[in-house]
């Protein structure tokens, strides 16, 4: 089943240039789609449109067969509950003045009345926090710490735990490993793969690192200058029909 469908999406910040130019793609349930491109190619703008942070200038986003453009309040809330995100910079993604557990519970408290969690069972919020920390392989005492007491990799694990806490259908991962050191990068990629296996959500993994995308995703899309140039199954990466730009990217890694 298709979780999300983007059709002919357009977005521009200045009149002469489209940041996202007529991009169409869809993500299936339980699938991870990688979106690769250089900085400034429009991949993050696409993510921001998808997350509702930016208004789209054309085209449509369809979630659960309902177009977002004419969604009512309830549909929109449903959408937000099912689409979570992890950003590049874990330090900026956590409120420095809140304890880890308070940041972790943010989405849960927002949606707790309409949630029916499949994978988490708990009797107290404290127990929930501990389960979440455990699933991202962090010691459960970290709940009472402040973000500045954690390393970059640990903080990114916390933001991942927050994203999965309400069992969304899709997580948009915008360069989640780019600001981490090399050992944490590998560990985070592994964690993401494990979580997908056990929880079954879809990923839209946005990165400039084709090799990282290759490691995590089943399908890969390539963007340049706002346009979607190429889209293929992971196995077809060396297929001769690949776009020239894709071949150039492959050459780098």
């Amino acid at each position: 089943m298709t979780v999300i469908e983007i059709n002919h999406l357009k977005k521009s910040y200045n009149p002469d240039k489209l940041a996202v130019n007529d991009v169409s793609l869809s993500i299936e349930e339980g699938e991870s789609l990688g979106l690769v491109g250089e900085s400034g190619c429009g991949k993050s703008t696409l993510a921001r449109c998808l997350l509702g942070v930016e208004r789209v200038d054309g085209g449509s986003i369809t979630f659960n067969e309902k177009p977002l453009a004419n969604a009512n309040r309830k549909d929109l809330r449903d959408y937000r509950r099912n689409v979570q995100t992890v950003f590049q910079n874990p330090t900026a993604s956590l409120n420095p003045k809140l304890k880890i557990k308070d940041s972790l519970l943010d989405p849960y408290l927002q949606f707790q009345n309409e949630l029916q969690l499949e994978h988490f069972h708990f009797t107290s919020k404290q127990a929930f926090v501990e389960q979440l920390l455990e699933i991202v392989e962090l010691p459960k005492e970290l709940g009472d710490r402040y973000p500045h007491e954690l390393s970059g990799g640990q903080k990114q694990r916390v933001t991942i735990a927050r994203a999965i806490s309400i069992e969304p259908k899709l997580i948009v991962l915008d360069e989640p490993t780019a600001s981490l050191d090399v050992l944490s990068q590998g560990a985070i990629l592994e964690l993401l793969a494990t979580l997908q296996k056990s929880l079954g959500m879809s990923y839209l993994f946005i990165s400039h690192d084709l090799a990282a995308v290759y490691q995590l995703c089943q399908r890969i899309a390539v963007m340049k200058d706002g346009e979607l140039l190429d889209m293929f199954q992971k196995e077809d990466i060396y297929n001769s029909r690949r776009h020239e730009y894709t071949k150039e990217l492959i050459g780098i890694f």
Partner: peptide
């Protein structure tokens, strides 16, 4: 070895 392993690679490499 850990450093080598941590960096994701394409199979061709």
């Amino acid at each position: 070895k850990q450093l080598i392993q941590a960096a994701p690679t394409l199979p061709m490499r």
